[in-house]
Design a protein around this nucleic acid. Sequence first.
DNA 1: CAATAATGCTTGAGCCACTCAAGTAAACAA
DNA 2: TTGTTTACTTGAGTGGCTCAAGCATTATTG
Lengths: 140, 140
Amino acid sequence: MALPNRPVATSSETEAALFDLVDVYDRAYETAAAELSLSPAQACVLGRLDERRGMGALAEELGCDASNITQIVARLEALGLVTREPNPRDRRARLVARTPRGDEVNHRFATAFTFARTAVGRLSPDEQDQLTALLRKALG
Amino acid sequence: MALPNRPVATSSETEAALFDLVDVYDRAYETAAAELSLSPAQACVLGRLDERRGMGALAEELGCDASNITQIVARLEALGLVTREPNPRDRRARLVARTPRGDEVNHRFATAFTFARTAVGRLSPDEQDQLTALLRKALG
DNA sequence: CAATAATGCTTGAGCCACTCAAGTAAACAA
DNA sequence: TTGTTTACTTGAGTGGCTCAAGCATTATTG
């Protein structure tokens, strides 16, 4: 289990609530991935392949080095969850796509990661709107 | 930069706002640590040493294996930010404590990690109370 | 009190994420 | 055609993380 990204000093109640939220969220994500024998990074990449796309597009969207994606995709491929096909338009590039098994695992992950759904579900529609507005304002 | 713990499908506006919050928070934490040449895990452990304490206590609080703490503390020690003294009451145990340099780096980290402070600061006191209440309710 | 068990931590092996530098091949430009 | 940019891979290196095994030391218990 990854260590929390959370300072111990909580200068306000609101900050403390944010810390708790992030902590619980991250752990829930990790747990859901682990139930499917995936790392968080693998679950993340798998979830971005609703349409086939190039390695570079993944790296850019996820804000990491291309070689990082190469390795994660290689492991997903070894697990049979993803294929790496040549791009007919550009023979340098590869198109990554989920296999049927990848689709199924991704769907099971989305089902297993209930945290956000559950948390939002504890609020009334009005409260949900309030929370959304407050978070958007806080995010600037 | 760590890949986001974030599903791509956003079934509601509120969930999307939660995703954004967690994403921005985690990246801010990582960035603040990196400015001090610390990993997020190192910053996390350093931040829990306001008082000297044993390895086991750290492992339990952070919910990870003791050997993980052994390694992180060893690196912090190599950086001169932490000491590992023998526990006079129990010669099996070690007491971890920040050095003066560790105190300074920890303080600089707390200063550099402005995200939560800044975000909360964008809200009025009333809004802060509302957000706290909503988050607490959502967390169950 | 001696044998046994439990505790606190370390070590070693192994996997994965991540980054950087260097390399290959194909596309593009001058 | 030559040179450059693009898309990706490879290799080396650092860390985080877990599990199994090991070593002291402390606690238990028969």
